[in-house]
């Protein structure tokens, strides 16, 4: 479906418009204020990974960050998590400036990062015990979180015994157990196969609806972003900067059938155009060299 035939992605049904009106009235949890991060290369030159990025996330919002590789998605997440310091600009969580990692910002990494020497339950208890909870209390809470992500049966397994999707569910439970204000997710389902990924997306929406949490979800998968997000922050590369902030016009609760709905396709067509401009620059095409006989064209 081309952009010309598609309905305007900005047109929202009354229900969706009402949703966004309510969303914007909720308090702001995360403020990103003119955030810039430059890295210096060994040869002395500088690369700007992220330039002058500003946005806010409201309470219980699901915000996706979408962009091509090299647009500074992961740099942004590391800055938000406090694992890296910005060159300029600020990150505010509930009006307090972020300067180091902390339990009020849960992070789920693409590489699972579960502690292999702890059982599934002990992994979930890790943050609670660091935070000063007693053993019994941490144990009880960890069990509840494992129940929430559907892994109560695997409480005493080790991470190495779990599949990728299950590991990522443990990682989500571990992050949520600290009662964070915001959940930062860095392409969490990127390493999973398509089926598991779809299943995990459904699970995540369900978890999100049942927990008071703001989710900031980084992905390069357009369908994933459209399926999950309230709003999508599209980034441009070199240097990484804001391209457009899109309100997803697809109503909630989301279902896989909506992948074919007109609103979905309209938004998809628009973002696709943002990410992949129609006319590819000439440097991007391969030279015409052929190693095969003329006359056996396959394309």
């Amino acid at each position: 479906m081309s952009a010309a035939e598609a309905p305007d992605y900005r047109r929202q049904s009354p229900a969706v418009a009402e949703r966004f009106r309510q969303l914007k009235q909720r308090p702001v949890v995360l403020t990103v204020d003119r955030l810039t991060r430059r890295f210096s290369r060994p040869d002395g030159s500088e690369v700007t990974a992220l330039e002058n990025l500003s946005f806010v996330a409201h309470r219980r919002e699901f915000l996706c960050i979408l962009g091509p590789s090299g647009c500074g998605k992961s740099t942004l997440l590391r800055l938000l998590a406090g694992l890296d310091q910005p060159t300029s600009g600020r990150v505010l969580l509930d009006d307090r400036e972020v300067s180091e990692p902390g339990p009020e910002r849960g992070v789920v990494f693409q590489g699972y990062t579960l502690f292999p020497w702890l059982t599934v339950k002990q992994n979930v208890m890790f943050g609670l015990k660091i935070g000063g909870s007693g053993n019994d209390q941490a144990d009880a809470e960890a069990r509840q979180w494992l129940e929430l992500v559907g892994l109560a049966k695997f409480a005493d397994s080790y991470p190495s015994q779990l599949s990728g999707g299950m590991k990522q569910r443990v990682a989500i439970a571990r992050a949520l157990a600290n009662n964070p204000r915001i959940l930062l997710m860095d392409e969490p389902f990127g390493a999973l196969d398509a089926q598991t990924r779809a299943q995990m997306q459904r699970h995540l929406l369900q978890i999100w609806r049942n927990v008071d949490i703001t989710v900031l979800f980084i992905t390069h998968d357009l369908d994933e972003a459209l399926y999950l997000a309230d709003r999508i922050l599209v980034l441009k590369a070199n240097p990484g900067r804001l391209d457009e902030l899109i309100e997803v016009p697809v109503p909630r609760p989301r279902r896989p059938e909506q992948f074919g709905s007109p609103e979905f396709l309209a938004a998809k067509a628009h973002i696709e155009e943002l990410i992949h401009p129609k006319i590819a620059p000439p440097t991007d095409s391969l030279p015409f060299i052929r190693f095969t006989q003329v006359g056996d064209d396959v394309e």
């Binding site: 998590a81 180091e100 990692p101 902390g102 990062t113 502690f115 890790f126 660091i130 571990r174």
Partner: peptide, 21 residues
């Protein structure tokens, strides 16, 4: 990094993460 985002810092990173790992 994961341990830091869960609230661990300083000496506890050594005793709770580095050594057990």
């Amino acid at each position: 990094e994961a341990a830091q985002t869960l609230g661990a810092r300083g000496r506890r990173l050594v005793t709770k993460v580095i050594v057990p790992a």
